[in-house]
Design a protein around this nucleic acid. Sequence first.
DNA 1: ATTGACACATACGCGCATGCATGTTTAATT
DNA 2: AATTAAACATGCATGCGCGTATGTGTCAAT
Lengths: 203, 203
Amino acid sequence: MRRTKAEAALTRQAILRSALAVFSTRGYASATLDDVARLAGVTRGAIYWHFDGKAGLFQALLETYSTRVTEIFASGANENGEFTEVLTRLVERVLEAVETDRGVQAVAELALFKTENLPELRSVQRHQAEAANLLLQSVTATLRRGVGAGSLRPDVPVEAAARVLLGMINGILHQWLLSPRSFSLREAAQPLSRIFLHGLARP
Amino acid sequence: MRRTKAEAALTRQAILRSALAVFSTRGYASATLDDVARLAGVTRGAIYWHFDGKAGLFQALLETYSTRVTEIFASGANENGEFTEVLTRLVERVLEAVETDRGVQAVAELALFKTENLPELRSVQRHQAEAANLLLQSVTATLRRGVGAGSLRPDVPVEAAARVLLGMINGILHQWLLSPRSFSLREAAQPLSRIFLHGLARP
DNA sequence: ATTGACACATACGCGCATGCATGTTTAATT
DNA sequence: AATTAAACATGCATGCGCGTATGTGTCAAT
């Protein structure tokens, strides 16, 4: 059954797609590799060939979509313009990505709020924690630049403010993900993140 | 081995304490009833006598501590005084409870951010969702009263604002719980929630 | 004093998903 | 054309943790 390389890459993608669906509906612990395989139209043997067991599949899944989110953040942070506007747009970008892209949405749900701490997922968790810390440092630096440029009040505790800002995004995401999409992410978050950022601005 | 009623209640408490420790370190899925039993100095038989299996134990654990949190919320919401002050104090109360009480802390971690959606926990999840919705309605009503009393700007979207406020708390909690206690909850959150609430107040 | 229920301990069976060790076919290499 | 190895499928062994059934000793009541 040796398929061509293109076919192999295709089944790999199919496995990843199935894994996304199964993991996000059943959760990691309850999901079985057999479910993933059958949904992809293969057997567990294919999974063990392409990935390093269950944990390896999960990690590969997270990496696939986390790069997309980091791209969004990186592109947003390097924009120029009025300071508050830049951050507001950044928030909007991220939330829009989550709201429209089902893949990003499911992965965000898995990585942020369903992080089951099994021993086999230790390395995955460390990876996530590093990414979160990097993001915090990035936002902190952005706020610090805002203070330096004089557009924010000098007495703003930048790191704490960055935590609150990210926490706000996370919190909104949490609310939106667990309630059955009862409200629009952007419409709810945009004016209020503006309020918060406006509170940081110097009078 | 028929212990007296007092002794039985004691072992029940011991089981709950052990369950809290084991579930919060290993997570629900990875935790085993044998670990819980051995930590409590009993066997699995005792657990099955006092509780309805693994899911029942988990549910009982959550209920034990969730009542304490709802008490805090209820007591805070019925205070009177300047509107912004009341809400600020409420936020502070909740965060203080989480920061000081290890039990509340661990349960918050389990219930909010490690909610593994196994089929056996469906009823638990529904219970949590109901509680969250009730809380949202409560905060929304409080904000609406603030608008009615004229202390908040009339154009504030109350429900969205309530979501953001709760989301902010959740987000901060999330940050604080997963990072190794690298900052003080109250010190970080208090001034910034004040900023947000001040932004809602009418000029 | 005996009985019965209580509060567990012990023992058993059971399913189930994982990991690995093989087949088996076919594409690529020479 | 023959050999190699890729890309899986299949089968097997294994362990682990849950649920329950049953034992067992002790307290309370008659």
